[in-house]
């Protein structure tokens, strides 16, 4: 186990990739704060599963685009665990449409959750991690933030923004022993990709050299590596977990 006794906050951890990240970090020995926006029952399930592993788990409802809610969430996590070692910025939504048909509100909603949310959560944990002189921040970007993707202007802009934010945060916090890295998943089987139609999925498979969709655990294991001491000499990087889609 590489994360024994570490205190972790995972945003958007009730479902999909975030859920698997929370579980994987707990398997590595961490105590986990599970943030969710709306899926209370599912967040509670994740917490129960973590508790059966003998770790501590708490669930915290918070909209990551709301600064007060984010500050309260981080405060509660630190109060319960006495510290905060690892933040995983995973919460995200999609509101896909062609640029010409995209509503301004769809743009704002996705940027607010997927990009501003990362900024707010990172800002909120920085004080604690600076005091500790150590910390790990792991941002979940997306491979489309590197390659672009028709029909996802808002999502792609946010995810590309996360990569830039990762690099800047890494540079600002490096001298305080805090590393900041991103993971860019390709097509992973989650509720989010289940919404795609069959033609889109077939098209996607053609682009993946490894010939299959990824699993949430593929992403979670990469996050666990970045959260652990094994990655101590890496910061500001974006790791592609995409079956070779983008090289």
């Amino acid at each position: 186990m590489r994360l024994e006794g570490k205190a972790v906050l995972v945003t958007g951890a009730s479902r999909g990739i975030g859920r698997e990240v929370a579980l994987e970090l707990a398997r590595e020995g961490a105590n986990v704060a599970i943030n969710y926006a709306g899926s209370e029952a599912k967040a509670a399930e994740v917490a129960e599963e973590i508790k059966t592993m003998g770790r501590e788990a708490i669930v915290i409802q918070a909209d990551v685009s709301n600064p007060e809610a984010v500050d309260a969430m981080v405060k509660e996590t630190i109060e319960v665990f006495g510290k905060l070692d690892i933040l995983v910025n995973n919460a995200g939504i999609t509101k896909d449409n062609l640029l010409m048909r995209m509503k301004e509100s769809d743009w704002d909603d996705v940027i607010n959750i997927n990009l501003k949310g990362v900024f707010l959560c990172t800002k909120a944990v920085t004080r604690q991690m600076m005091k500790q002189r150590c910390g790990r921040i792991i941002n979940i970007s997306s491979i489309v933030g590197v390659s672009g993707n028709a029909g996802q202007a808002n999502y792609v802009a946010a995810k590309a923004g996360v990569i830039g934010l990762t690099k800047t945060t890494a540079k600002e916090l490096a001298t305080r022993g805090i590393t900041v890295n991103a993971v860019a998943p390709g097509f992973i089987t989650t509720d989010m990709t289940d919404k795609l139609n069959d033609d889109t999925k077939a098209e996607m498979l053609k682009q993946i050299p490894l010939g299959k969709l990824g699993e949430p655990s593929d992403v979670a294991k990469t996050v666990a590596f970045l959260a652990s001491e094994d990655s101590r000499y890496m910061t500001g990087q974006t790791l592609h977990v995409d079956g070779g889609m983008v090289m």
Binding site: R127, M130, E172, L173, T175, R176
Partner: peptide
């Protein structure tokens, strides 16, 4: 700059 932020903290 970061030192000053920490001093304030």
């Amino acid at each position: 700059s970061l030192d000053v932020v920490e001093l304030v903290m």
